[in-house]
Design a protein around this nucleic acid. Structure first.
Lengths: 214, 214
DNA sequence: GTCTATATCTAGATAGAC
DNA sequence: GTCTATCTAGATATAGAC
């Protein structure tokens, strides 16, 4: 097995196993076995299992951050939400172990707790700014206190659609189908607050999208 | 410490520790220490730690089941959702360790996995029946496929409001405040689909409730 | 029923040869 | 850089006296 960088191999293998079995159920020995290296070698490249987790999370963050960089003064059409959600859901799917066990992970890895909280706050702001963008484009009408509740409902969906899909539709949905349903759910949260005619246009679009995918 | 039933003491102590620190972070020794009994004594009353978890879950189920027994032909007014949500949120709060680590718990306790999936399915049905109840009372107007999405959005909120609150508002919200916000979020999911005049009436009520509590 | 002492097992992590 | 062998810690669970 002439492999490139062993460090990279360890990270890839870990990510795959974490996603499949959940991080707490994957030992460093499992990782070494799966990567066809010795446990000692693994610890030559990483000081601890937590370091592997943190490095994976760091890489997730680097790719995720640009996706939630929504400026305050953006103008958004309802359709713009689509691509935005698709990109972020795709990425979260790739690192889904993070979203399966957040309570546990943060309890055991204090550095991760701060990072995750910060991420959530920025994502919350992104949801808020997206709604503002719809307002500024004249597509959305909503009162301020309802806007914050709605933003949080969206954030809750963005944060927990993965474990929710695994719990409610075990095996029956592959990743992309679970994503489609979750995206539809988020879009539906926004739909009834849209003005006409955007609301009906968007609803028609969403329905076509959902039935096409299922 | 002249205590009543030791078995009950173990269960109470476990529940408290599980809720505070998360079940995976609580060892049988911690439980024994906190209950002022020996580890050996704990294992006289329970064959394993999983048995403690399962017994606690069983008790949760017994109290929860009646709360989600919504008949198919019920007639519901929007205000009826309130008490229903309050009761179930209160109970979930009492057993919140279950909702903090569902992915982990189900992975490590297979019996729990089946039970939890079943519970989720029944709760999903309850959400659906509640929406149907609003329709049959003439308060709600929604198309069928949107109704299922909405029911799932509600279910997702019912399932993850606890970890979400812990993650986004660490320490800043005590239990009852987190509950109020979560309930408001669920009610807001339904509000825009209500007919007039119920929609405006309900919105006014909800606003008063939220501002009174914060 | 309850205790103390201990067995067992597993996971993370290290030492030292190659 | 990589290996084999091993240490250590901590958690579940048991044995046997009281």
């Amino acid at each position: 097995m002439a492999r490139r960088n062993t460090r990279e191999l360890i990270l890839e293998t870990s990510l795959g196993l974490f996603n499949e079995f959940g991080e707490p159920n994957v030992t460093t020995n499992h990782i070494a076995d799966e990567a066809d290296i010795s446990p000692g070698n693994l610890y030559y490249h990483f000081r601890s299992k937590n370091d592997i987790v943190l490095e994976l999370f760091k890489r997730f963050l680097v790719r995720f951050q640009p996706l939630i960089d929504i400026p305050e003064d953006v103008l958004l059409q309802p359709e713009d939400l689509w691509i935005q959600l698709h990109l972020s859901f795709e990425l979260k799917s790739e690192y889904r172990f993070i979203y399966r066990n957040m309570a546990d992970l943060t309890a055991r890895v204090p550095d991760l707790e701060r990072a995750l909280r910060g991420l959530l706050q920025r994502e919350r702001k992104a949801a808020w700014n997206s709604l503002t963008g719809l307002e500024q484009a004249g597509a959305l009408q909503i009162e301020k206190h309802e806007k914050q509740l709605l933003a949080d409902s969206i954030l809750l969906n963005l944060t927990y659609w993965i474990p929710f899909a695994e719990l409610t539709e075990p095996g029956r949905l592959d990743d992309s189908q679970a994503q489609v349903v979750a995206i539809a759910r988020v879009l539906q949260l926004v739909t009834p607050w849209l003005r006409q005619p955007q609301q009906d246009q968007f609803r028609t679009l969403a329905l076509a999208y959902l039935s096409h995918s299922s």
